[in-house]
Simulated scan of single mutants.
Amino acid sequence: MTDQHTPAAGAAPEPEADRTVVVERLVSAPREVVFTAFTSVDHLSAWWGPDGFTTSTREFDFREGGTWVFTMHGPDGTDYAEWIQWREIAPPERIVLLHGEYAGDPNAFDSVFTFEEVGEQTRVTLSTVFPTRQLRDTAVEEYHAIEGGAQTLAHLAAHVEG
């Protein structure tokens, strides 16, 4: 028996493109400055999340294999348990992370942040690959992942540009 998020045994995996959300933003700051905004909880707490959200951190270890365990507080008062494991950190070009509600979350998703120099600016690309298309669709339709991702990158831009 499988749950609604796990493909049946023997089923062909869904194409990655069908499970992916990509959000981009051009930030008016050097790549090293933008990258640094990910490296400490003080920076992340200042900009992480969509409009109206704040974070409370319980654990933060920015290194490959380290974790960030925190709660996102929604503008409506709802709290969301969050867990991130830093999988790859390649300063100042790339950060790869696994993001779920807790360690071992079967619905956790992979996200890759890339930082590309564009003159004096930095193009930040967030590419998120969900385990299934259904999880991607739920994130987009119910949780407004594209809009939330764009708002989060706007907060990052405001943080490093200010």
Results as ranks from 00 to 15, higher is better:
Tyr102Phe: 14
Ala103Gln: 13
Ala103Glu: 12
Ala103Asn: 15
Asp105Val: 04
Asp105Glu: 05
Pro106Asn: 01
Pro106Met: 00
Asn107Ser: 11
Ala108Ile: 09
Ala108Glu: 02
Phe109Ile: 07
Phe109Gly: 07
Ser111Ile: 15
Val112Pro: 03
Val112Asp: 00
Val112Gly: 04
Val112Tyr: 07
Phe113Lys: 13
Glu116Asn: 13
Glu116Gly: 12
Glu117Trp: 10
Glu117Cys: 10
Gly119Met: 03
Gln121Arg: 09
Gln121Cys: 02
Thr122Pro: 08
Val124Met: 03
Thr125Cys: 04
Leu126Lys: 02
Ser127Gly: 12
Thr128Asn: 11
Pro131Asn: 03
Arg133Cys: 00
Arg133Glu: 00
Leu135His: 04
Leu135Lys: 05
Arg136Trp: 12
Asp137Met: 03
Asp137Phe: 02
Ala139Arg: 04
Ala139Lys: 03
Ala139Thr: 06
Ala139Val: 06
Ala139Cys: 08
Val140Tyr: 02
Glu141Trp: 04
Glu141Lys: 15
Glu141Gly: 12
Glu142Trp: 12
Tyr143Ala: 06
Tyr143Arg: 08
Tyr143Glu: 09
His144Ser: 09
Ala145Thr: 08
Ala145Phe: 01
Glu147Asp: 12
Gly148Thr: 10
Gly148Val: 07
Gly148Leu: 07
Gly149Ile: 05
Gly149Trp: 11
Gly149Met: 07
Gly149His: 08
Gln151Cys: 11
Gln151Asn: 09
Gln151Glu: 12
Thr152Ile: 05
Thr152Cys: 14
Leu153Gly: 06
